[in-house]
């Protein structure tokens, strides 16, 4: 059940971000509950304008993956529910819709941990990415994915035996096969070597530029994410506590201290103090 409450303002009443054009995706003050009791998101809002890369950052357990699943509808497969607020995609309310329908509307989630189908080949995984499509362009798009990731073409065995980096590439390639308008990407850098992280982020930017796909990017690697993104949100305990353009966030003292740290080494999140949310949308 998802009812709009007084707290959830209509999209049109919200101050537009930048241009007057409404964002492609707009999450308005949602609350998410697992198993009817575990409250994980407590009034989260964010906007993703068409054609941009937006980063969603935060500590472990902040609710980043939950946010993506609330958008893609996969929450349903884990006994979770949007109990308040609304998710609007391309002017249409999609919260409460089944995940397979949401894919057809143009949102594709690359889940945390890649989740490729281990007992199928690369090619079969790619073809499945295009499951919702009926047009003739699928063959061509497979070639396109191979252009982005040439090494996938050489791997003819089962996808379960690919390296972690190759699996991540396959997961992104599979998302491209669906020709989505919006890709929700959950921690693409997880478990990859610094060099591979660079490569994967390069491709994410390239995809966004070449194909015009909008990307909502969840990351632990804040530095890489903010370099790729134009706008960022930082969340903590189920809420957005800070947001701004990527360069604003990169310059922010708190963000520097807790998320960017020195070099590649990340500080412990344990002593992370609560941010005061500086700017309110609602």
């Amino acid at each position: 059940m998802s009812v709009t409450t007084d707290a959830g303002a209509r999209p049109s009443e919200r101050p537009a971000q930048g241009a007057a054009k409404p964002p492609l995706l707009s999450v308005n003050n949602i609350e998410v509950v697992y198993n009817d009791v575990i409250l994980v998101l407590r009034g989260l809002s964010l906007q993703v304008p068409e054609g941009e890369i937006v980063a969603l950052l935060g500590a472990n357990g902040a609710g980043k993956s939950t946010t993506l699943k609330a958008i893609s509808g996969l929450l349903k497969t884990e006994d979770g529910e949007v109990t308040r607020g609304e998710v609007v995609f391309a002017g249409e309310r999609i919260d409460g819709t089944d995940p397979d329908r949401i894919v057809r509307k143009g949102i594709f989630q690359v889940m945390e941990g890649r989740r490729i189908i281990a007992d199928m080949t690369c090619l079969e995984n790619l073809r499945l990415g295009a499951f919702t499509r009926r047009d003739a362009g699928v063959k061509q798009d497979i070639e396109m994915v191979y252009e982005y990731f040439p090494r996938l073409k050489e791997r003819t065995g089962l996808a379960g035996y690919l390296s972690g980096g190759e699996q991540q590439m396959l997961a992104i390639g599979r998302a491209l096969m669906a020709r989505p308008r919006l890709i929700l990407m959950d921690e693409p850098s997880m478990g990859l070597s610094p060099l591979l992280v660079k490569e994967v982020f390069g491709i994410i930017r390239q995809i966004n530029r070449d194909l015009g796909v909008t990307i909502l990017l969840v990351e632990q690697n804040a530095r890489m994410a903010l370099q790729a993104a134009s706008y960022g949100y930082i969340m903590e305990s189920g809420k957005v506590v800070l947001d701004g353009t990527a360069s604003e966030l990169e310059g922010n003292e708190d963000v520097k201290e807790f998320y960017l740290g020195g070099g590649d080494e990340r500080r412990s999140f344990r002593n992370l103090k609560s941010f005061k949310r500086r700017k309110r949308w609602l």
């Binding site: 089944d98 397979d100 989740r115 189908i117 281990a118 499951f131 919702t132």
Partner: peptide
Amino acid sequence: FNQQVAQSLGIS
């Protein structure tokens, strides 16, 4: 293989 993965690909 996995029902959640299948649904994430748009399979009912």
